[in-house]
Design a protein around this nucleic acid. Sequence first.
DNA 1: AATTTTTTACCGAATGTTCGGTAATTTGAA
DNA 2: TTCAAATTACCGAACATTCGGTAAAAAATT
Lengths: 187, 187
Amino acid sequence: MRPQKVLDIEILTSLTKVFRAKGYEGASLKDLSDATGLKKASLYHRFPNGKKEMAEAVLNHIDVWVKAHIFQALNNTENTAEVRLKNALKEVRNLYDKGNETCVLRALSMQSSLELFGSHIESAMTEWITVFTKFGTDINLTPEIAKAKAIQTLIEIQGSLIVCKGLNNIALFENTLKHIENNYLKH
Amino acid sequence: MRPQKVLDIEILTSLTKVFRAKGYEGASLKDLSDATGLKKASLYHRFPNGKKEMAEAVLNHIDVWVKAHIFQALNNTENTAEVRLKNALKEVRNLYDKGNETCVLRALSMQSSLELFGSHIESAMTEWITVFTKFGTDINLTPEIAKAKAIQTLIEIQGSLIVCKGLNNIALFENTLKHIENNYLKH
DNA sequence: AATTTTTTACCGAATGTTCGGTAATTTGAA
DNA sequence: TTCAAATTACCGAACATTCGGTAAAAAATT
């Protein structure tokens, strides 16, 4: 008996794990093959343009997830501002597994891979800022302050993920999420 | 004529540039050879343990630089607190070329290279925090607040470097340095 | 039977590393 | 002071391995 067809979503999940952990250069086809359970040639059947296409699929996969979870929670005007933010940060916590997982945008933003995925990374970050800026103005911040806070939020998330890894201390990530929450809701 | 010896400092500077830009996996021996002007075999003469030893030399090189410039400026008690901090942040600005250069610690902290250099990275970050915490208590912050501010400083520097790259906007880094300055001096 | 999916088997190129060697310089014993 | 031995600094060429990628056949699905 032959193995059953591996589901697209399971492939993407596995590919994501590898690119997050090793970056673009560090992720070899063997790594990607081992992680997905598909032989190299099978990966080329699914992704005719090879490693680059796999990384693009991963970026899109994360994009969709972020929109469906983080951005949607933050935009859900049926809730109070406080609930919207808390729900969004809860999804951020999930995305990065409480600080254990790195950000794909970061993993793919070394100079060499930035040449390949730079525009995707830029627009992904821009959208984070847009969505958080919108939230800021919703709670009556001035557009300037709202945008500054949005950028600061991105910076703190990215920075704390790095420092987390470096110090091997995920408590830092939780503190940063609290810090972000206070930065928006504390008066 | 025997070829002129390539200066250790020049080699380290070139190696640093490559590892910063490409990370550990992404930096090939050819890249390192091209950057230094030494053939691969000559690099092995200088660094018998190969790429790993080159990366370790780079980490030490940066360590020394950071101690001699950033930490020394911050510890120089002949100056006022304001001057100490401003001088230190000026050196930070130099280290990262106003936001154009990435952090070596970050470049070498992908999972695979973290296994090789993790303890070095951890102690480097720990020392940043120790030195900035010391500065905080010098200006009469409580030890707890001083440490929290030190960690926050590290996070903001790392984070803004990432977001800088992603958005291709160096101004963010300058804003972050100002933000850090205000966070310490504004009362 | 026809098509999609996965496999085996393979390729040239690039990887990190080692070897053997050249030529200039430094060392130190005669 | 001499001069052979040891050391330094570099390089071309080769090493085994791994790289990303491909063709064709076998298996599974329709």
